[in-house]
C-alpha cells in the first residue's frame, strides 16, 4: 500500500506540488494522469528518493520512506523507470542487466539467472547479446522495465513509458505490465493521455497543478461525467419517425445529429435502451447500429482537471 499525504514541493517560488495526496492499494495498476507540467515526474521522483519534498509524507506499507531511515527501505521496494531511457550505449542488453544486478549486490550465477529471467519476462531473450544502442525504442523501454525489476520491487513507477513508442510496442508494453500486475506487483504509470491508461488500469489519479483532482477506480471516474452515458444510433436508410419516437422516451435528455445517425444523451438503464431499440425496430426504422458509449473520456478528463466536477470528486 502506497500512501502519499499532503506532499508539497516548490522550485523557488513555483509550487510544483500543492498538498498532493493519493493512495494506491497493493496489486493495483494505477494510472497517474495529468497534463505536462502537472507534477507527475516530481511526485514520482520524490517517491523513489531522487528529489526531496518540502513537507508531507510517503508511506509504503505504513512505513515512512522520506526520512533518512526510510531511504534504505525504499531502495529495495521500489523500481523506477524514468521518462528517459538512461541506458549505456556501450553495453549489451545482458551486460546492462548484469551491471544493475551488481549495483544491487547480486553477483555470479544468481545474476546470470536473474538476467535470463528478466530478459524472458520482457521478451528480449533473443537480444541478450545485442548492443543496447542498436535496440529500437520499444526494446529499450522494455529493457528499462526489466532493469527496474532487478531488485524484485513491490512497487514499480513508470514515468510516461509509452511516449514515443509505436502502437505495436505500446501494446506489447501493456501486456508486460498487465502480466507484472497479475504477478502481484503494484504498478504506477504516468501519462498525459487518459484513454491510453483506461483500458489497462484498475484505478486512476488525476493531477492538475500539483493537486490531486481525483483518486479512485475507473468506474467512479466515468460516473463522475456530468451527462451520464450516450447512445449512438446509425441508420441504413431514411430514419422516418425515429426522432419523434425517441423524443417520447423520458430518459433521453437530448439528441444531436451525427453522420447518418443520432447521438443521444441518456440517463436510463439497459432495459430502457432495449425497449427503445425494440420500439424503433417495430416501427420499421432502418437501424444499422445501436451502441452505448461513455462520454468521451478525454472530455471527462478535461472536466475533472479544470475542476468542473471538483465537488462531485470530493463527495465521492
Amino acid at each position: 500500500m502506497l500512501e502519499i499525504t499532503n506532499l508539497n514541493k516548490s522550485f523557488g517560488k513555483f509550487k510544483a506540488l500543492n498538498g498532493l495526496s493519493l493512495s494506491v492499494n497493493d496489486g493495483e495498476l494505477f494510472g497517474f494522469v495529468g497534463a505536462n507540467g502537472a507534477g507527475k515526474t516530481t511526485t514520482m521522483k520524490i517517491c523513489v528518493g531522487l528529489e526531496t519534498a518540502d513537507n508531507g509524507s510517503v508511506k509504503i506499507d505504513g512505513n515512512e520512506v522520506l526520512d533518512r531511515k526510510g531511504s534504505s527501505l525504499l531502495r529495495g521496494k521500489v523500481g523506477y523507470v524514468p521518462d528517459f531511457f538512461g541506458v549505456y550505449a556501450d553495453l549489451t542488453a545482458s551486460e546492462y542487466l548484469h551491471f544493475f544486478a551488481g549495483a544491487y549486490n547480486i553477483w555470479g550465477k544468481a545474476a546470470d539467472s536473474l538476467t535470463d529471467n528478466l530478459l524472458e519476462l520482457v521478451n528480449l531473450s533473443d537480444k541478450a547479446d545485442t548492443q543496447v544502442d542498436s535496440l529500437s525504442r520499444g526494446m529499450k523501454q522494455k529493457l528499462c522495465v526489466a532493469r527496474a525489476l532487478v531488485q524484485n520491487p513491490k512497487i514499480l513507477f513508470l514515468d510516461e513509458p509509452a511516449s514515443g513508442l509505436d502502437p505495436k510496442a505500446r501494446h506489447e508494453l501493456k501486456e508486460i505490465l498487465k502480466n507484472l500486475s497479475s504477478m502481484g506487483k503494484t504498478i504506477i504509470i504516468s501519462s498525459h493521455i487518459l484513454p491510453e491508461l483506461i483500458e489497462m488500469c484498475t484505478s486512476i489519479g488525476i493531477i492538475s497543478h500539483g493537486e490531486m483532482k481525483f483518486n479512485g477506480s475507473i468506474e467512479d471516474a466515468l460516473s463522475l461525467s456530468s451527462g451520464g452515458e450516450c447512445i449512438e444510433i446509425t441508420f441504413s436508410g431514411d430514419p422516418g419517425p425515429a426522432l419523434s419516437l425517441i423524443r417520447e422516451c423520458p430518459f433521453i435528455k437530448s439528441a444531436e445529429p451525427i453522420s447518418s445517425g443520432l447521438r443521444l444523451t441518456a440517463s436510463g438503464n439497459d432495459a430502457d435502451y432495449t425497449a427503445l431499440l425494440k420500439k424503433l425496430v417495430t416501427n420499421d426504422v432502418p437501424v444499422a447500429t445501436f451502441s452505448k458509449k461513455h462520454e468521451n473520456v478525454e472530455d471527462i478528463f478535461l472536466n475533472i482537471m479544470e475542476g468542473g466536477i471538483q465537488n462531485a470528486a470530493d463527495n465521492a
Binding site: 523513489v48 531502495r75 521500489v78 523506477y80 531511457f85 541506458v87 549505456y88 550505449a89 549495483a103 532493469r147
Partner: peptide
C-alpha cells in the same frame, strides 16, 4: 548527461 545517474542513484549503491 546521459541521464543514467538518476537510475544509478536509486540502486543499492
Amino acid at each position: 548527461e546521459r541521464q543514467t545517474l538518476d537510475v544509478l542513484l536509486t540502486t543499492n549503491m
